[in-house]
Amino acid sequence: MSIAHTGAAVTPETGDGGSATEAIVVRRRRGRTSHARRRARTIGLLFAAPGLLIYGGVVLWPLVQSLQYSFYKWDGISASTWVGFQNYLNFFTDPVLRSTLGNVLVLIVFFAVLPIALGLLSAALITSGKRPGMAVYRWIFFLPQVLTSVVIALLFKRMYAPEGPINEALRAIGLGALAKNWLGDFTWALPAVGLIGTWVTFGFCMVLFIAGASSIPPELYEAARMDGAGPVREFFSVTLPGLRGQIAVALTLTITAALRAFDLIWITTRGGPGTSTLTPAVALYKAAFVNPDVGQAAAIGVVMAILCLIIAVVITRVSERE
């Protein structure tokens, strides 16, 4: 979403610092076309109106409502009480709710950092030279993206089971001591769930990076090679800077995916054991639909939305900086 924003934001503008002549030219041009433009704009608005109305009805209005709910203690039906910022304070002071933020940081490593690092590596390997069957690899690694998350979660639940394939494989190669109750272990459940996220987002990052790398002019590589750069130097000096836009996209999408993580966790662990895999999204769901505390759920939602927005803005700003 934020990506589209930056694209649209590059509209011509008469900066206040522009010279007088420039301003006159612009004004005259505006005067000449203003009628046609205004008409075009009205027609444009008309075309956009149905979409805008729906967007307003299903996104903006509920957003405003959520904001309102977040200041009340409300069970969803009976009269509500105004509690000010109490729901927000709870989110940061309640030990369980606060711990969900820590869990999300761990998930970001697994959903964003790891897949992007692996994606860059595999993109570099795949683009470094034509090898037979490369399309097959791309296809295989991208596959998780087209699978429904419920299917993925159920598959991994099987694989992580005490007698599941992962433990069996460990035992088969003599590493039986490492076999664990992956999803039932207070230390390992969160990384285990995180790795599912890595598996899902890795292929997406890789495909994105391969596409980006193919648009880097080959002359740059030739020049780098002429200057005596090896494959590693080439990667850091040409490929990586060339992929800055793609990395920004990947970071934004994967970090927000980590912040929103719900389905994988709900199906595999429900936030357990204890609260070791509880994420804000799961806590939100429980508050909204299981223990009716709509205000708390709304407050969690609003905080997460703001966090997502800040992260998206920071990433785009940083990636645009020269």
Partner: peptide, 17 residues
């Protein structure tokens, strides 16, 4: 705008029954 809407509606959620 959002705050104005809230102020205009000025009602707390729930309690309609």
């Amino acid at each position: 705008g959002a705050l104005a809407v809230l102020a205009v509606t000025a009602c707390a959620p729930g309690g309609g029954n």
